[in-house]
C-alpha cells in the first residue's frame, strides 16, 4: 500500500522535526522584549492556523472533484481533510485565547482574524452535522460537497467584512510587526513542521475513511 508507506515516512519525519521544532521555539528563538515568553505561543498558533487553512483548501478542491468525477474517494478526501481542519481550527481558537489573556488582558477579542476562524469553525461543524443526518452514502457526499465549496468561498468575504466592521470600532493594540531574523527562521521551520503534521493527520484519517468504506461494502456483500 502506497498510503501506508507515505504515512510511515511522514511519521518518522515528524519524530525528528517535532522535537527539533520545540527546541527551536523554546531555546533558540529570542524572548520577545515586550510580550516576554508568552510570545512563543505565536509559533504554534500561526502554524496551526496555516495547517487548518491547508486542510480546508483540500476540502474545497476535493469537493469540486467529487461533484465532477462522482467518485466517492474524493468525498473521503474531503471529509478527512475537513476533520483535520476542524481539529486545527479548534486548537487555533484555544491557543489564541491563551495568548490573548496575558497580552490583551481578555480571553476573547472580536479581532477580524479570530472572528474569521470562529465562523469557519461553525461552518465546518455544520458540515459534519449535515453528514451525520444523511443515511444515503452518495447523497451525503454530494450535499456535503456543496457545503465544502460554499463555506470555503465565504472565507474572503467574511474576512473582508469583519475587517471593515472592526475598523469602525476602536482597534485593540496590535502586536508589533517586526520579527527579528532568528524569529523568522524559527517561524518558518515551525510552519513547515505543522504542514507536514497536517498532511500526516490527513492521510491517517483518509486511510481510515477508505477502510471504513471497504467494510461497508463487504458487509453489504455478506448480507446479500
Amino acid at each position: 500500500m502506497k498510503t501506508n508507506r507515505t504515512i510511515s515516512i511522514l511519521f518518522f519525519l515528524l519524530l525528528v522535526m517535532m522535537p527539533l521544532d520545540f527546541y527551536l521555539i523554546f531555546k533558540v528563538a529570542p524572548t520577545e522584549r515586550i510580550m516576554g515568553d508568552v510570545q512563543r505561543i505565536f509559533y504554534l498558533h500561526v502554524s496551526l492556523a496555516s495547517g487548518a487553512f491547508l486542510a480546508f483548501t483540500c476540502t474545497f478542491v476535493s469537493s469540486i472533484l467529487f461533484l465532477w468525477k462522482k467518485n466517492l474517494i474524493w468525498d473521503s478526501a474531503a471529509s478527512a481533510s475537513a476533520e483535520t481542519g476542524l481539529l486545527f481550527a479548534t486548537l487555533v481558537l484555544i491557543t489564541g485565547s491563551l495568548w490573548a489573556r496575558p497580552i490583551w488582558n481578555v480571553w476573547w477579542t472580536w479581532d477580524p482574524r479570530l472572528l474569521t476562524v470562529l465562523i469557519l469553525w461553525f461552518i465546518y461543524v455544520g458540515y459534519f452535522l449535515l453528514r451525520g443526518g444523511i443515511a444515503d452514502r452518495f447523497k451525503k457526499a454530494q450535499y456535503s460537497a456543496v457545503i465544502g465549496i460554499i463555506g470555503y468561498i465565504d472565507i474572503p468575504v467574511i474576512r473582508y467584512a469583519t475587517k471593515w466592521w472592526k475598523s469602525i470600532h476602536p482597534l485593540l493594540t496590535r502586536e508589533g510587526g517586526g520579527l527579528n531574523p532568528v524569529m523568522k527562521n524559527v517561524m518558518f521551520f515551525s510552519l513547515t513542521t505543522f504542514l507536514v503534521l497536517t498532511v500526516f493527520l490527513f492521510l491517517f484519517r483518509f486511510r481510515l475513511a477508505r477502510i471504513e468504506e471497504r467494510l461497508q461494502k463487504l458487509k453489504k456483500l455478506t448480507e446479500d
Binding site: 465562523i119 461553525f122 452535522l129 443526518g133 444523511i134 456543496v146 460554499i150 473582508y160
Partner: peptide
C-alpha cells in the same frame, strides 16, 4: 440541503447563519 437530513429544518440555522454573517 437540509431537507434530505433526518434532522430536517432544525439543521438549517446551523448551516445558514455562519455563511450569512457578512
Amino acid at each position: 440541503l437540509t431537507t434530505a437530513s433526518r434532522y430536517g429544518e432544525v439543521l438549517l440555522p446551523f448551516l445558514y447563519l455562519p455563511v450569512v454573517v457578512p
